[in-house]
């Protein structure tokens, strides 16, 4: 099939950027979208032009490295699909496809389509963990976890940290990511002791880098793991609860 790519090129964080148009004739529809970029880069190299920089690694939708705004949609038109899993057969022959980097002050552009998503690491560092130093754990089956609770935690934990939620959000908010990370831990019995300190720490860290959630729901649609905004409600509720909680009493409830 024949495609035309309009790709955002930007040499560095502060350089001006622009769209460049590249014709991609005769590409196979079995290719993935990133393989299309591999081919483009070979083509550019032959023409002595610098290849397009983009992050990628696993190419099977799990590492969360790949990140492209494809025709105004984070990760492209397919629901529940990361850029690396998008295959050309899902695109229309002959179409012009515009590709931009994620845009958010929280994700500064490094070069071309590659952005710095380490603000997500800051959020996790601030409280996205259960304090469980190695060696002190008791037998894994001592605490029962209802299957539904465990499944819900897993639904949240499926987040791959790609940042599509931020990219897609009209406000550049990171609520879905933060809520996913938060809910995963706070839905489990093991996560209860730190629940309220965790929520405040994570929300405040998140708000250092990102916008605010006004409930557009765009993130849920863009998320390659289809993580539900229900988790955002959970995050909001616990944040408010944390303001009123007398945590010194939290040992009284088993």
């Amino acid at each position: 099939m024949d495609l035309t790519l309009r790709v955002w090129r930007q040499a560095g964080p502060d350089s001006p950027g622009r769209f460049e148009t590249y014709a991609m004739p005769g590409v196979s529809e079995d290719m993935s979208f990133l393989e299309l970029f591999d081919v483009l880069n070979e083509q550019l190299l032959a023409d002595n032009e610098e290849p397009v920089a983009f992050d990628h690694d696993c190419r099977e939708g799990i590492c969360g490295s790949c990140a492209m705004m494809i025709d105004g949609r984070a990760h492209g038109p397919e629901k529940g699909t990361a850029t690396c899993q998008l295959h050309l057969r899902k695109l229309k022959n002959g179409s012009v496809i515009t590709v931009e980097p994620w845009r958010s002050a929280g994700f500064p552009i490094i070069k071309d389509l590659a952005v710095d998503r380490s603000a997500f690491d800051r959020i996790v560092e601030s409280g996205g963990f259960i304090t469980a130093p190695t060696g002190a754990a008791r037998d894994a089956n001592e605490i029962l976890v209802p299957k539904e609770a465990s499944d819900a935690a897993m639904d949240a934990a499926a987040c791959i940290g790609c940042g599509a939620c931020v990219a897609a959000c009209p406000n550049s908010a990171a609520q879905l990511f933060t809520a996913a990370k938060y809910s995963h831990l706070s839905l489990l019995p093991q996560g209860q002791p730190e629940r309220y300190t965790r929520v405040v720490a994570m929300v405040e860290e998140m708000e250092k880098y990102f916008g605010s959630c006004t409930n557009h729901g765009e993130c849920e649609q863009a998320c390659p793991k289809e993580i539900s905004i229900d988790f955002i409600a959970m995050l909001n509720r616990d944040f408010v609860k944390a303001q009123f909680k007398n945590t010194r009493l939290s040992g009284q409830r088993a």
């Binding site: 931009e100 958010s104 002050a105 897609a168 916008g211 605010s212 557009h216 729901g217 765009e218």
Partner: peptide
């Protein structure tokens, strides 16, 4: 919040967005 959100995305998308969920109302 509006001001915060504007600061959170100082440079806008340079191509048109294709919204999937954000409604006219939102």
């Amino acid at each position: 919040l509006t001001r915060m959100n504007q600061r959170a995305r100082p440079s806008k998308y340079q191509s048109p967005r294709d919204y999937a969920a954000a409604s006219f109302a939102s």
